[in-house]
Simulated assay, not measured.
Amino acid sequence: MRYMLMHYQTQADEDGVKPSPEKLAEIGEYVQGLAMSGVLLAGEGVSSSRNGARLEFENGDVRVIDGPFAEAKELIGGFAILEVDSLAEAVEHARKFALLIDVERIDIRKVNESEDLQ
């Protein structure tokens, strides 16, 4: 089963504060281990909302709002797609990653397969 993990920005992320070289190495080692084991199928972090835009749709109208956005902890900071045997396994990987990157929230969603949509 595939699960998508979405972690949220911290204020430090939104402010452009970079992790220390030691922390980056630790994160890289963990992510590389997941990739080598076949668990991590894809994953990326995203930059501050000041480099993005938001589209809002109402009654057929589209409004484009340029970043930055006010509430950092409500913004996606990155994602990963994992291939695991269960939600419990996805939760365990998310727990380890959250502690490693010091985030307060990660959402986990099962990726829909074609049989899920029938």
Score class of each variant (00 low, 15 high):
1 M>F: 12
1 M>Q: 08
2 R>A: 00
5 L>W: 00
7 H>C: 09
8 Y>A: 07
9 Q>W: 02
9 Q>P: 01
11 Q>M: 08
11 Q>K: 11
13 D>E: 14
17 V>E: 09
17 V>M: 09
18 K>R: 15
19 P>V: 01
19 P>Y: 01
21 P>C: 11
24 L>A: 13
25 A>G: 08
29 E>Y: 03
29 E>F: 02
30 Y>F: 15
30 Y>P: 06
30 Y>W: 11
31 V>M: 15
31 V>F: 10
31 V>N: 15
32 Q>T: 13
34 L>A: 05
35 A>E: 08
36 M>D: 14
37 S>M: 00
40 L>A: 05
42 A>W: 01
43 G>P: 04
43 G>T: 04
44 E>I: 05
45 G>C: 08
45 G>T: 09
49 S>Y: 02
50 R>K: 15
51 N>P: 04
52 G>A: 12
54 R>H: 13
54 R>M: 13
54 R>S: 14
55 L>Y: 10
55 L>S: 06
58 E>F: 14
60 G>Q: 09
63 R>N: 14
63 R>I: 15
64 V>G: 06
67 G>Y: 00
68 P>G: 02
70 A>K: 14
72 A>T: 02
74 E>Q: 14
75 L>E: 05
76 I>P: 02
76 I>H: 01
79 F>C: 02
80 A>M: 13
83 E>Y: 03
85 D>I: 03
85 D>Q: 11
90 A>V: 04
91 V>M: 12
94 A>Y: 01
94 A>R: 03
95 R>A: 14
96 K>C: 09
97 F>R: 00
103 V>E: 00
105 R>T: 12
106 I>Y: 00
107 D>I: 07
110 K>C: 07
111 V>H: 05
112 N>P: 08
114 S>P: 11
115 E>R: 04
117 L>A: 11
118 Q>K: 13
